[in-house]
């Protein structure tokens, strides 16, 4: 079905989408809503899935470790650098959901470093410290944000990374990723 512009003026038009999605959903009655809460149902579904989270986190840490090992063995290229960034970025995005918020913070710091420091200036030692920290924290199931050792590690890595980025990256390119 063609969509007729509802308003048009010199150079732009406003178009109604042809498919009205409200026709595909229904607001539940009070009685139905009392029996089924979509958000609570989804939270319960996620809880059921959580038995697998530790092994998933271990897989993600192993992927990051493998990406870094490839770089150490063959030098950094655009391709393997992107693989390392993607592995860190995946952990940054998932770690909290998987119950490892501090690991997510370390991965976020690594993303910040890779994204804002030119490849040729990327400090191998600092990258390795991030990778090792992720692996160690996952191996030790350091899940609680109050874990003093993990917290200290995150704070120190973040501090050193921010300092390095501030000294190395162009001023306009230092925002958090």
């Amino acid at each position: 079905m063609a969509s007729d512009p509802t308003k048009s003026n010199d150079g732009y038009e406003v178009v109604k989408p042809p498919r009205d999605l409200r026709s595909k959903v229904r607001v539940m009655s009070e009685r139905e809503a009392a029996r089924f809460d979509p958000v609570k149902s989804a939270e319960a579904a996620l809880e059921r899935l959580s038995a697998d989270f530790d092994s998933w986190m271990a897989n993600e840490a192993a992927t990051l470790g493998a990406a870094w090992a490839e770089i150490q063995a063959n030098g950094m290229t655009e391709e393997n650098g992107a693989t390392l960034f993607r592995a860190a970025h995946d952990i940054k995005g998932q770690a909290s959901t998987l119950g490892y918020p501090l690991v997510g913070a370390v991965a976020g710091s690594l993303c910040h470093l890779i994204e804002h420091v030119p490849t040729e200036s990327l400090p191998a030692k600092l990258v390795a410290q991030h990778v090792d920290a992720v692996r160690a924290m996952v191996a030790e199931t350091a899940q609680k944000e109050e874990n003093p050792t993990a917290r200290a590690l995150v704070d120190r890595l973040t501090e050193v990374t921010e300092d390095f980025v501030a000294r190395t990256a162009p001023p306009a390119d230092q925002g958090q990723t």
């Binding site: 958000v39 149902s41 989804a42 939270e43 319960a44 579904a45 996620l46 998933w56 998932q94 959901t97």
Partner: peptide, 17 residues
């Protein structure tokens, strides 16, 4: 592309009905 994230999203969507 990440299979774990895909599973999480699928589980949430399934939970919504």
């Amino acid at each position: 592309d990440n299979p774990h994230m895909r599973s999480i999203l699928r589980m949430l969507l399934t939970g919504y009905g």
